[in-house]
Structure formats: C-alpha cells, structure tokens
Design a protein around this nucleic acid. Structure first.
Lengths: 173, 173
DNA sequence: GGTTTTAAAGTGAGTACTTACTTACCTTTT
DNA sequence: AAAAGGTAAGTAAGTACTCACTTTAAAACC
C-alpha cells in the first residue's frame, strides 16, 4: 500500500461519509487526497471499487468490535459486552461505522448476515439466563442497540453514559 | 394541483425512495411522470423544491400516524398505541416513511423535533405507571421502535406479528 | 353569448457544467 | 529493463436548470 493509495482511501472515507457516495465525485476525492484523478482508477478500477476497498479495510474494524462478544465465556459476559457495543465506537472507527449506516440506506446494503453470529451468542446467553423467549429477546435487544447506534452516529445522542448505565441496570449486569 | 403536477410528485417519491435523492436525476423523474423536464422546474423551482413538496405532502401522513398516541387518554393507551407505531405503516405510506429514513442519512435530516411530543407523552405514561426512570424508559423504547421501523422499511423483518406480540407482552398491554 | 385578454400549464431544445472514466505519457522502484 | 506508480489532458454522457415558445382554459369585456 503506497502512501498515495492510502490517501485516496482516507479521503474517500471522509467524503463518502459526510456527503454520501453518489453526492461525492471522484474529482473531489482526488483533490482531497492531493493526487491526480486518474490514479483512483489505476488503483481501484472504478468508483465502486474504491468503495469496496474502504469496506474491506473496515472488515478488521468489524472483527475488532465483535470479537469480545464472540469470545466471551459466560452469558453475563456476552450480555455485558453486547450492551457496550454502540459505546465502543469512537475515533477513526466512528467515520467507518457512520458510512456503513449511510450505505445501508443509500445503496440498500444488507448486513443482517454480519449480525447473525452476534444474534446466536445473544440467544445462547438469554437461554442460559432463563429468559422465557430467548430468540425474541435477542432480536429485541439488537434492534434497540441498532437504534441507539444510529442516533449516536448521527451525533444526536447527548447522554451516552447515562443510557449505557440504564441499559446495564435493566439487564442486571 | 393539476394532474401532471401530482404525477411528478408521485414519480419523484417512487424514484427518490428506491434510488435515493442524488442518484435520481430530474430527467428520470420527468420520464417516469410522462411530462417534460421543464415542467418540474416551473412547478417546484428546483430539485430541492420538489423534495420539499413531497415532504410537505407527507406531513399529513405524519400527523395521521402520531395522532392516536397524542390523543390517548390513559397511560395504557399511550403505551399500547406507541408499540403499534411501526406496524401501522403500510401501503402508500410505506414509500414515504422509507424515504424519510433514507433522507435522514443521505441529507442528514433531523427529525428529533418531530419525535419530541411523542417522547413527552411516553414519559408521562411511564411516570403514571410508576416506572423508576420514566425519561430513560421512554428514550429506550423509542430507540427500539426506531430500530424495528428501520428493519421493517428495509423489508428485513419477517416476523412482524410475533415481534409485536412480544412487545405488548413485555410492556403488559 | 360570443369574442378577446390574460395567466397559468406545458413543451423541447438548448445552456454551462460535472460526471465517471480513458489514454498517452512520464517517473520511480525493483 | 520491466513493472508499477503517477500525471495531465482529454472523452462522451449526464447533470440541474433556462428560455423561447405553444396550448389550454377560465375570466373580462362588449
């Protein structure tokens, strides 16, 4: 990975995130990255390829975020770490996850597959904790966290820690 | 409202919803509506104006959806009708609400103001029902419903009624 | 009631500009 | 010397929007 190639990815991540994929032209990405526009197409073939490169880079971030849950050893741990999920997004990752949510709507991306392992572990935890309907309980919690993450990424959440505490209290962890 | 003007609005609602605002050109809207492209600008001044016209038309749909909650007379009624919220979206309204969610991300629209009256009534209900933290409880529920609505509008929800029943059971209504 | 006036509805070809992408060419690294 | 990195100047198609013009239809006048 050359410096300029990386510049392109960072510039695109920033601009796609703040203006959207379709509303951001390759010429603007090139300008922001301080490279010639042609270089984008040399490295990524086309605009879609540039987006895919960003998404592939983000896979690691995805794994980094989910790993604590997938590797948890007790139901309490699974639950606790799941409740932390939206609040662990910060810094560089913030932009990436915001882009994910934008793409979900702009390009109708589906990441239910990505969430399935999480769903499974949560169901497992709720089963162990004797909840009467573990599957629904897991689905319900993931929707809630999705709503919270959406609000957080849009910058509309002003009581993060209070909400997190409330959640932990609600689920007794 | 002439027939052709209405055609434009309907075509734009459809196309903006399925392809997004920026990815859909005025020429495509004109073609879909079977009018000349110029007519769009005669009626709505510019593309943004056309979007606003759709949104203004949608205000009624917004009121129609929220009214049962705002006019509820008991805390149980408030709660019950709030839990119904995502499941009352259907038919023509479906497209409109999907557009709302798309715009929320594509153009960074904020509809927290629109939700405030709902938040207030929910808080009121949870207070009357002796929940220990009514404000947080209301915020929490709205995030959950937001997550559910998002999934529903993306067509990713395959157990609507089951989820609705589960919710009603959880909140004892 | 029929004729003229007026304003809105509607068209289609054009505008300047932007878009994603290509090509020919130069430079650096291996 | 070969391959990859990088650039500047293109290209054709598309973009939002305008302009000069015609059609429609209802109001205003005699």
């Amino acid at each position: 990975m050359t410096e300029k190639k990386n510049n392109i990815i960072q510039a695109a991540l920033k601009l796609f995130t703040c203006t959207g994929f379709h509303a951001c032209s390759t010429s603007k990405v090139a300008k922001q990255a301080k490279v010639s526009e042609g270089l984008i197409f040399k490295h990524f073939k086309n605009k879609e390829g540039l987006l895919q490169a960003i998404l592939v880079e983000g896979e690691e971030k995805s794994k980094k975020l989910f790993y604590p849950i997938l590797s948890a050893e007790t139901p309490q741990q699974i639950l606790k770490r799941t409740l932390e999920l939206p609040f662990r997004i910060k810094g560089d990752d913030f932009e990436f996850w915001k882009l994910q949510y934008k793409l979900k709507w702009e390009l109708e991306y589906d990441h239910s597959k990505k969430m399935q392992p999480l769903m499974d572990r949560l169901t497992e935890a709720f089963t162990a904790l004797d909840y009467s309907n573990p599957e629904m309980e897991a689905q319900f919690l993931l929707y809630t966290l999705d709503g919270i993450a959406a609000s957080l990424l849009k910058g509309a959440l002003n009581n993060e820690t209070e909400l997190h505490d409330y959640l932990m209290n609600k689920y007794n962890v």
